Amino acid sequence: MIFVTSVGNNNIIQNKEIQDYINANLHTDLHALLLKKSPFPDVSMHEIVQQIKGKQTAQKKFPFLLKEGIIFPPQLNLEQASSETTALYKSQILKGNKFVDLTSGFGIDAYYLSGNFNEVTLVEQNLELLNIVEHNWKILGRKASFINQNLEDFLSTNKEYFDVIYLDPARRDQNKNKVFLLEDLSPDILQIKEILLATADQVIIKLSPLIDLKYLISVLPGIFRIEIIALKNDVKEAVVFLSNEKKDGITVNCINLESGEPDFKFVFGDEENVQAVYSEPEKFIYIPNNSILKAGVFNLISERFNLKKLHPNTHIYTSPQKVGGFPGRILEMEVVESKQIKKKGQFNIISKNYPLKPDDIKKKYGIKDGGESYLIFTQSKKGKIILKSL
């Protein structure tokens, strides 16, 4: 094992003059800035712009790193890192004695997930990135063992047993194309699943939100929990929990962070045991959030909330009275004819199970985007319909 104890030239970037220059240019055109010569002989303009981009990203994605002395890695590492919000949510699920992140990256997940553990180990094969993370964790007052190794080598020589192993496999192939099947990830999860489960009580794997749940469960034994995590209705990740301990059923939790909407929990397979009831639109219209849609529990939503579905392929629901606690949008609407749509009106356009996309609809009807009113172009069992908010 190689333990990292230095941060190399990153100390130079912390010079007060350089930091003042970085902070003064947080809103400067970075393309124009890159064409200029660096005013500091020991730091390139590329390195300065890297820090500016890091601070800009941190303002939105992980504001806890907006602290004096923090160093930021290249843009790709920033893009691949989890947000502070999703990492904090996952941290509330875990606690124990020993935690290891086998693909620590920029360390956002590791920082939050390891907060309830006594011993923390970060494994990362990119030495430069690990140096930066070690430096930042010292600034933040968080202790860990930092190991510069790829996870396969670490697992082959490791003698420790952990309460929790966490990993986020790379989801791009050698040509930088996105991949989704477990055997195409790096590392190949199917190849290392046995050693993972022999090394920890629980194994937690962050996967692409595009992963198919039925496929996932069919190829990866030991799953007992799946978290489908959306942030402001944008599904960010599917997180899978594995254990050797036999458990009854697989619990799936759909969460839409920063929305104020409740979680939606179910046992995988429940969807197959219920049937939706269909109806033409009534007074209230319900659109599930995207974590629900990702889970594919279209009939279960109908059954749980006593709602009627418009069409087998239209995942929009309706009821005559308003139902509380629904994980998604609730709109009071009426059916309108196309001739009732005011030209040059302003609406939020939703198109579901309809031939035209929102941009095509706006062009056809001369509608401007925005405002507080909604138009939904969709289908019921009787055919194409347009719904307008009241």
Rank of each mutant, 00 (worst) to 15 (best):
A276W: 08
L300G: 09
N233H: 02
E134L: 14
E160A: 14
N118E: 15
K247R: 13
F180N: 13
Q275C: 11
S186Y: 07
I52P: 00
Q191R: 14
T157G: 10
G371T: 01
A230S: 11
K178W: 08
E119H: 10
L310Y: 08
S279L: 07
K265Q: 15
A81K: 03
R142M: 09
N15E: 10
I330D: 03
L78R: 08
P312H: 04
Q346G: 03
N126S: 14
A295S: 09
L35G: 15
Q340C: 02
H46D: 10
E245I: 05
Q14G: 06
R225V: 01
E17K: 09
V120H: 13
K357R: 04
K352H: 11
F377L: 00
K322W: 03
I189R: 14
V164S: 10
A24S: 12
K381A: 07
F72T: 01
N348G: 02
F264E: 02
K143C: 05
E272C: 10
V235M: 06
F347D: 01
G383R: 04
R172T: 03
S186W: 03
V7F: 15
S156P: 07
P209S: 10
L155V: 07
E258M: 14
S44T: 07
T28V: 11
Y365T: 00
L197K: 11
I250R: 07
I147S: 06
K159I: 06
Q92A: 09
A81V: 00
R329G: 03
K382I: 02
K60R: 15
S338R: 05
V133R: 05
S91T: 03
P221C: 05
Q321S: 13
K247E: 07
Y215K: 06
E245L: 12
D101S: 05
Y354M: 00
G8T: 08
N148R: 05
V267Y: 15
I71E: 12
S44A: 04
Q191L: 14
R304G: 12
G115A: 14
L257N: 05
G260R: 06
N150D: 15
L26Q: 08
D369A: 13
K362D: 01
K214I: 00
H135M: 09
L35F: 14
D42G: 04
N11H: 15
S302P: 12
V49W: 14
D360K: 02
G8R: 15
Y21D: 05
E280Q: 13
T318H: 10
E119K: 06
L33V: 00
E152S: 15
P262Q: 13
Q340N: 13
Q379P: 01
E227L: 11
K246C: 09
L375P: 00
H46Q: 12
W137C: 12
R225S: 11
F268P: 01
H46S: 12
D29P: 01
M333D: 01
Y278R: 08
A81W: 02
I376Y: 04
N97W: 03
S82W: 08
L216A: 07
K61Q: 09
N306W: 10
L130Q: 09
W137A: 12
I349Y: 03
L181W: 08
N256C: 08
Q92C: 09
